[in-house]
Computed example of a mutant assay.
Amino acid sequence: MHALEAAAFAAEDSTQDFAGALLAGLHAQPKRVPCKFLYDAEGSALFERICELPEYYPTRTEMALLKEHAAEFARYMGPDVELIEFGAGSGRKASMLLDALEQPRLYMPIDISPDAVAAAAGTVWHAFPRLKVVPVEADYTGPLALEPQRGQRRVGFFPGSTIGNFPPDEALAFLRRLAELLRGGGLLIGVDLVKDPALLHAAYNDAAGVTAAFNRNLLARANRELEADFLLDRFAHYAFYQPVARRVEMHLVSLVQQQVHVCGQAISFAAGETLHTEDSYKYSVLGFHSLAAQAGFLPRATRVDPEHRFSLHWLEVPA
Rank of each mutant, 00 (worst) to 15 (best):
A70N: 04
F240E: 14
F310H: 10
G296Y: 07
V244C: 01
D233P: 02
R75I: 04
K93D: 12
D115V: 11
F9S: 06
F214K: 03
A10I: 11
G78P: 08
D40Q: 09
Y238F: 14
C51M: 14
A7C: 13
Y204E: 11
I50T: 12
P143F: 06
P79C: 04
L23M: 10
D80M: 05
R246N: 12
F235A: 04
R150Q: 14
L182Q: 08
A202K: 14
K67S: 14
G186R: 00
V134Y: 15
W314C: 01
P58A: 10
N205K: 07
D279E: 12
A94N: 10
V210R: 01
I163T: 01
I50D: 06
P159I: 04
A3R: 14
S44R: 02
R234G: 13
P30Y: 05
E249Y: 03
A100S: 10
T141H: 02
L219A: 03
K67L: 09
L232F: 06
V210K: 01
V260G: 05
F166P: 09
P104W: 04
V285F: 03
L26C: 00
D305H: 11
N165D: 06
G164V: 02
Q103S: 15
L175T: 08
L231K: 11
V262R: 07
L83P: 02
A6K: 14
H313A: 00
P129F: 01
F73V: 06
N217W: 00
I84L: 14
A295M: 06
S284K: 05
F310C: 11
R303C: 11
E249S: 07
T123M: 10
S161H: 04
S284Q: 12
G20T: 13
A319C: 02
L188N: 08
I50V: 15
R303V: 15
V317Q: 11
E137N: 11
E180V: 13
F297Y: 07
R303K: 15
A6Y: 09
L199I: 14
R183E: 14
L144Y: 10
A100C: 04
A88P: 03
A319D: 07
Q16W: 06
L66F: 15
P159N: 03
A7F: 08
L218C: 08
L252M: 10
A41T: 12
L188D: 08
L4Q: 04
P148I: 06
N223G: 05
Y283R: 08
V256Y: 08
G272M: 07
E85Q: 05
D80R: 13
Q152K: 00
Y281M: 05
H308C: 14
N205P: 09
A127F: 00
D80K: 11
Q103M: 10
D229I: 04
R216D: 00
V117P: 03
A21D: 15
R216E: 05
